[in-house]
Simulated scan of single mutants.
Amino acid sequence: MVAMVLHRIHTPLVQEERPLPTPGPGEIRVRVEACAVCRTDLHVVDGELPDGTYPIVPGHEIVGRIEAIGPGVTGHRIGARVGIPWLGHTCGHCPYCEAGHENLCDHPEFTGFTRDGGFATHVVADASYAFPLDGFDDPVEAAPLMCAGLIGWRSLRMAGDGKRIGLYGFGAAAHLLAQLLRWQGREVYAFTRAGDTAAQDHARHLGAVWAGASEDAPPELLDAAIIFAPVGPLVPLALKAVHKGGRVVCGGIHMSDIPAFPYSILWEERQVVSVANLTRADAVEFLALAPKAGIRADTITYPLARANEALDDLRHGRFQGAAVLIP
């Protein structure tokens, strides 16, 4: 097999030949068809997440075909297409797992961070965290759903049922979530970096009723705002944009420091909450909903060997939608 390997943070990935892995008990080996490139992969490369494992093969928005099945696995078959997300394993016995909050597990494993991920031709996954993708005919289009789609769905559930929803940072997650919101009959307000007319045009093309710079005030106060950009100063801006009782959801795994802000913009029962990982129930719900909503990922593809280029293009915002690696 071939893998793009991160040996040390702040260094380029290195292409390596490795022996084909054998799945252990409860595991499957998947031949990767496509793996989307997520901003979390940049956080891994930049060492912005604690307790990482190195060397590591990044990548956690994986779509592929099951090639081998380990002992004790049921419910999967050779040749079936599956999706593999960020949360790659949970202990099942900590207080959070037992309470149905496996996304907060005390002893988790994360695909592409603490266990090898999908920037490769093959990956071994916990069979319990591989989701059937029957009916998803295009692996490239399905790959971004496995994180950008899933974390967007969980963020939206935490944002509530309001009509006017602001999306700060119009990248992979926001462009998928905008389609779901429009299908639900809600209004999308897109916030981008100042001067990023390409992202604003993309948002309008996907049905946003308004698009502007993050520093701009929307034409109407919002019911909720979701922040996908890892930029702490967006939190007070979003608080100013929501009405009384509104909620600001921080949808990323990493964010720069949130600056001090006056209590007056939090008062009147506004809330700031964060989203952590996902549950398997989130994945089942969203993957059933995505085809009904007609969600289509806008993608740009790169061969596996150009993973470093894809990461750099993501870092500098050189494309709209999602980048996808193809082995």
Rank of each mutant, 00 (worst) to 15 (best):
F119L: 04
G88V: 00
I56Y: 09
R164P: 02
D282F: 11
L150Y: 04
Q15G: 11
T114E: 10
L311C: 05
D196S: 08
R315W: 14
G24Y: 07
G75S: 10
D223H: 06
G212L: 07
D223N: 08
T192C: 03
A281F: 08
E16G: 02
Y54L: 15
E215G: 14
A211L: 03
D201V: 02
E187W: 01
R8L: 12
D106A: 15
V140N: 05
T114G: 09
G24E: 11
I258Q: 01
L20R: 15
D223W: 11
E27N: 10
A203N: 08
G83C: 08
R154D: 09
R8D: 14
T90L: 10
E48N: 11
P291C: 15
V235M: 06
L180T: 10
R29D: 15
D137G: 00
A68Y: 06
L181Q: 00
R77K: 13
T299L: 12
P144T: 12
V284I: 14
I84V: 15
K244E: 13
V32Q: 01
Y263K: 02
N308T: 08
I56S: 03
R154N: 05
D161L: 09
P58G: 14
P219W: 15
C250F: 06
A238W: 05
V284A: 15
D298N: 05
A190T: 12
H101E: 14
L221H: 12
G245I: 12
A305C: 09
G207Y: 09
A293Y: 00
G207V: 03
H60N: 11
A305K: 04
G79E: 09
K292H: 12
P25K: 06
L325D: 11
H60P: 00
S256V: 07
P327S: 14
L325E: 05
R65W: 03
R182E: 04
A276Y: 13
V14M: 05
W267F: 06
A288H: 13
S256A: 11
G52W: 03
T192Y: 08
T192F: 04
I227T: 08
I78F: 12
G59V: 03
T299P: 08
F110T: 06
G294L: 05
G185Y: 05
P132Q: 15
Y189M: 03
R306C: 00
G317S: 10
L176V: 04
Y302L: 00
F228V: 10
D196M: 06
V209G: 01
I151M: 04
T22C: 12
I258S: 02
C94K: 09
F113H: 11
A229N: 01
H101T: 03
C94N: 04
A159G: 03
A224P: 05
G112F: 07
T301G: 07
T22L: 14
K163I: 12
G245D: 12
V73Y: 02
P262R: 09
L311H: 06
R39H: 15
D313M: 00
V124K: 08
A178I: 10
L13D: 08
E309D: 13
S214F: 01
V44F: 13
V248Q: 13
